Computed example of a mutant assay.
Amino acid sequence: MEGVVRGVGFSPVKGMRHLALDHVDLDELGAVGDRAFCLVDTAQRRVLRTVQHPSLMGIVAQAYDDGLALTLPTGEHVEGPVTVSGETITCDYWGRSVDLALTDGPHGGLISVHLGRDVRLARAPRGGVVFADPITVVTTASLAEIEAEAARFRATLVLDTEEPWAEDTWLGTEITVGEATLRIGGPIPRCAVIDHHPETGEKDAQLLKALVRQRPTNRAGEPMFGVYATVTRPGRVSVTR
């Protein structure tokens, strides 16, 4: 099965603005550069979650070489090298432990002021702050069915489909996307993040409730939208023009 790619993206810092990109490089661990960093409450030893800190979506993060640039909604901007301090910390991320390398530099201070609490920027191991499989996929027909924009779902890939919910039947299917091949996994349970504007983080929709009425839910009552995937053949995936 071959997929037509209508969108690709990720954020280099967990929870920050999901960037729409022209292409993405995939390997066995997912999208290269995706969630390479995260924010840590060192006192609580917890990785900050987007659903609890939606204002993070208002911050644009762009990684380059060994550096990181951050732009706040106010226009404040900081950029520079991200230097690992030599300190490591083991944090909780959705009930599992992940070892993170704390960093030095101005980035953490700027974000702390924005959030009104002390946080540190940390470098995460590949896949360390990913909830399940590293790739997430949504489809154009399903987005059209619920009249929602792809950015709200922060998916790695948006694939073109003619029928809504076609992805529900893809479990175990291998799909070629650009130079890469994916194996489709299970459905993605959705949380309240989708009710927040993807560029400001402000709550401006009731999409979660609408999905609960239309879609299957898990034991926690979370509606399913989109599917997870793993990479079986690495390669570059570009948006089809």
Rank of each mutant, 00 (worst) to 15 (best):
R6D: 11
L121A: 04
L56V: 13
A124P: 08
A31Y: 00
K209E: 14
P81L: 12
L207R: 13
A166N: 11
P54V: 01
L121P: 04
T42I: 03
R35V: 01
V98I: 05
L211Q: 09
H197G: 07
L102R: 04
A132H: 15
V24D: 13
A205C: 05
P216M: 06
A205N: 10
H197C: 08
T230E: 15
K209D: 15
R49S: 06
D25P: 03
V227K: 14
R213M: 12
L29C: 12
G33A: 01
T74D: 14
T136Y: 04
T74C: 05
R183V: 09
V47G: 04
E87N: 11
G86H: 01
G105V: 13
A122D: 07
D195I: 01
G178C: 04
V137E: 12
T140G: 00
C191P: 09
G127M: 09
R46G: 01
A101N: 08
G7W: 02
R241I: 00
A210N: 11
A43S: 13
G186I: 03
R17A: 11
E167R: 08
H107F: 07
R49Y: 04
Y228N: 13
G75K: 04
L211H: 09
T176E: 14
H107W: 04
N218H: 14
F131D: 15
